[in-house]
Amino acid sequence: MTPVSVHEGTAPVILVQPHSGTFVPVEIEARLNPCGRELLDTDWHVDRLYEDLLPEASVVRANFHRYVIDANRDPSGVSLYPGQNTTGLVPLVTFDEQPIWAEPPTDEEIEARRRDYHSAYHAALSLEIERVKARHGVAVLYDCHSIRSRLPFLFEGELPDLNIGTNNGESCARALESAATDICAQSDFSCVLNGRFRGGWTTRHYGKPRTGVHAIQMEIAQHCYLETEAPPFAYNDSKADKLRKTLKQILERVNALALSGELEGDGS
């Protein structure tokens, strides 16, 4: 399987999906323990959740699982949230702090994965950003994520339904941040802006409004569209349909803003 799939759309919006892939090479899977092989921390069915919500959008998707290497982490291994619990470039534990490896990878193996998977993914994403920006003058990365709503290792209590991250307003124009926040606030879902999740490495690394590249992360509590937040993590059509209406509104509004020209030169 190729490390990354790219769909080249005609819109200024790129749907980025670094954590929905479930591919684990046989030689790596053999070194996971039984807990690791459950792939508990997948962004389950995120590709299905966003399918055709904005048909003209580009899609860049990592096909490999985050346990192989996390495409949304700084390749240097620097923590996204210093002082807070999180998982690293190659996770050693689940979001429940349970070990996932029978035989953890060596530094040499991590470097090989960085080259073969992480770098390949970001090379493809960078090319798509440049293609979209050349066509529209701007590119908007909409970073698609989901997570279990109760994970004491990462955060207290229950996560809001919709968690918008803009690196405290630095990764995108204010108009984009306001549009997403306003639509979420008017929906039936609870929401927060720059709460526990302010945007991962993708949002922070690429989101540079002054260069014409804007990035916004959406982290969704999985109970909003799954039967349960436990294996087999089945997709619930009725829940998902309700959520998709809100997500569609966000994407259409973001796309309209990018096409309007309002974002060009907006480095706020």
Score class of each variant (00 low, 15 high):
Val90Leu: 00
Ile129Ala: 05
Arg150His: 11
Phe155Met: 11
Cys144Asp: 00
Glu156Thr: 13
Val140Glu: 01
Pro82Asp: 08
Asp74Thr: 11
Leu54Ala: 05
Arg115Pro: 01
Thr42Tyr: 10
Pro75Tyr: 07
Pro152Ala: 09
His65Lys: 06
Glu108Arg: 15
Leu154Ala: 11
Gly36Lys: 08
Ala62Glu: 05
Ala62Cys: 15
Ala112Leu: 13
Ala139Cys: 13
Val59Gln: 05
Asp143Ala: 06
Leu89Lys: 04
Ala139Thr: 14
Val93His: 06
Asp161Ser: 15
Arg131Lys: 14
Leu92Val: 06
Leu92His: 09
His118Gln: 03
Pro160Val: 07
His136Glu: 03
Leu127Pro: 03
Pro152Gln: 09
Val68Ala: 02
Glu156His: 12
Ala139Phe: 11
Tyr67His: 11
Thr106His: 04
Cys144Trp: 01
Pro160Trp: 06
Phe155Leu: 14
Phe95Asp: 14
Leu162Trp: 06
Glu56Val: 05
Arg48Phe: 02
His145Gly: 05
Leu162His: 07
Ser119Leu: 07
Gly77Trp: 07
Leu162Asp: 05
Asp96Lys: 14
Leu39Thr: 13
Arg66Gly: 03
Ile164Val: 15
Leu80Phe: 02
Leu49Ile: 11
Glu156Asn: 13
Pro99Ala: 09
Leu92Trp: 01
Asp52Thr: 15
Ser149Lys: 03
Thr94Phe: 07
Thr94Ile: 04
Thr94His: 11
Tyr50Trp: 15
Ser79Ile: 06
Leu154Ile: 15
Ala134Met: 01
Glu130Gly: 04
His45Thr: 10
Asp116Cys: 06
Val78Ile: 13
Val138Asp: 02
Val90Asn: 07
Ile100Gly: 02
Ser149Gln: 14
Arg37Thr: 00
Gly77Arg: 11
Gly83Tyr: 02
Gly88Tyr: 00
Gln98Gly: 00
Glu130Arg: 15
Ile69Asp: 00
Ile147Asp: 02
Gln98Ile: 14
Ala57Gln: 07
Tyr121Ser: 01
Gly83Phe: 00
Ser149Pro: 07
His118Ile: 10
Val132Trp: 13
Leu159Tyr: 02
Ser149Val: 05
Ile110Ala: 01
Ser126Asp: 11
Leu141Ile: 12
Ile69His: 04
Pro55Ile: 12
Pro160Cys: 04
Pro75Phe: 04
Phe155Trp: 15
Gly77Phe: 09
Ala102His: 10
Lys133Tyr: 13
Val138Ser: 05
Asp116Trp: 08
Tyr117Thr: 04
Glu51Ala: 14
Asn85Tyr: 13
Pro160Ala: 10
Ala57Trp: 12
Gln98Leu: 14
Ile129Pro: 08
Pro152Asp: 02
Tyr50Ser: 03
Val68Trp: 06
Asp107Leu: 14
